[in-house]
Design a protein around this nucleic acid. Structure first.
Lengths: 214, 214
DNA sequence: CAAGCACGGATTGGATACAATCCAAAAAAA
DNA sequence: TTTTTTTGGATTGTATCCAATCCGTGCTTG
């Protein structure tokens, strides 16, 4: 079931590839991203590259200087802390507001996702785990009718280094146990508890990441 | 001293103009933004329009559907509430973290800005007030070394309807009195108090806005 | 008569071409 | 030698052109 990602436009594809390159340090913080270079590298024209860079600017991965182009934003330890603090805060609020609007179908779906992640752990299939983890977090906040905050957390969830490879293996298990606790909070219909769990979940992940980076 | 805004690129100019058109309801929520039309309207080619739309997407004013273009995002009452709640939360955190890193020069600058706003009130110069208000809020969070959150609050401050014209006259005075309280918190070196003031300041503005909209 | 299919206009997505801007190094002046 | 000017290459910003996609309308066919 090797799901191949489908892209509607070239631009989305390019966005993903550049982001990947930034995470994998092909382009290092502070480095200038020359549009021609990227275009040649990916075999496209400069136009989708430009739009991709705009998207990455929105995600906070690059910065635009007029007539000077895009620069990779640096990742200091503090940046990671900030990121996870923010994500914890926002995602906490989102799930709290979301909970009571989740349908029975959503809840069973969440259960199966947790089961799938258990399997992923057994198979040591990181990519699949990451995908299911994304789906879990996205579904958990589906019920929230606040659009902007959902957009933001979506960016955090998709855009940021869940990929950091050295991190994942150690924490997959702990992570999923925490997911199970969330399911419990869901059964108890306790939004505050759920929010707390989500906040802690993300902060823990953040702390783990900063420690690995040291 | 009628400060004329300087644009580095056409794209920035177009972005501003489209945003203005959205705020002034030239383009209404849900309406599709046809690139050719915008390009003709502003006398430029479609290219800067496209990039402008991307920027506005980032600001949350429009949404992109692949191969269907951009749509103006709707503003329901609830959206406003969300927006101001978020902005209050984020800007509160930002100024709390910023305060202790503001220089003496920054503080005097903040004072003069408040004085200028008092003058603007006397002259009933809304545009100038809005500008100074922006500058005040931006400067107040200058000391914060968290980049992402600053980017977000910047978007909120610049991107959202401080412009709503019917609102401003009534609240300019109250608003600036609250600014003065913030300056006091600054003198007392009390970041928690400052944060509280900022949160209330923004929530009050939000509530005023929702009431006007009804 | 209804359902599906094909065609065409409208609109977006992408490529290529050209103009404006920046930056650094070399040349000229003090 | 130091400062200013200029000049050219590199890179971004904008325009124009072409291709891919979508969507509605009208025709075909069962």
């Amino acid at each position: 079931m090797n799901q191949v990602k489908e892209f509607h436009t070239l631009q989305e594809k390019v966005t993903d590839m550049i982001r990947e390159s930034i995470f994998t340090q092909v382009y290092k913080p502070g480095e200038r991203l020359i549009q021609d270079e990227l275009a040649a590298r990916f075999g496209v024209s400069r136009m989708p590259v430009r739009e991709a860079l705009r998207c990455l600017e929105r995600e906070g991965l690059v910065a635009f200087l007029p007539h000077k182009g895009a620069q990779v934003i640096g990742f200091r330890r503090e940046d990671i802390e900030e990121l996870y603090y923010l994500r914890a805060l926002l995602e906490g609020i989102t799930v709290q507001k979301s909970m009571n609007f989740l349908t029975k179908k959503d809840r069973t779906e969440l259960n199966t996702l947790v089961e799938k992640m258990d399997q992923d752990i057994d198979n040591n299939d990181m990519d699949s785990f990451i995908t299911h983890n994304h789906q879990f977090h996205m579904l958990l906040q589906k019920g929230c009718n606040w659009k902007k905050i959902k957009l933001l957390t979506k960016e955090f969830i998709e855009g940021y280094p869940a990929h950091v490879p050295s991190l994942i293996p150690k924490t997959m298990f702990v992570s999923n146990e925490e997911h199970k606790q969330m399911l419990r909070a869901l059964e108890l219909k306790d939004p505050i508890m759920l929010r707390q769990l989500v906040e802690n979940h993300i902060m823990r992940a953040g702390n783990a990441l900063t420690q690995v980076i040291e």
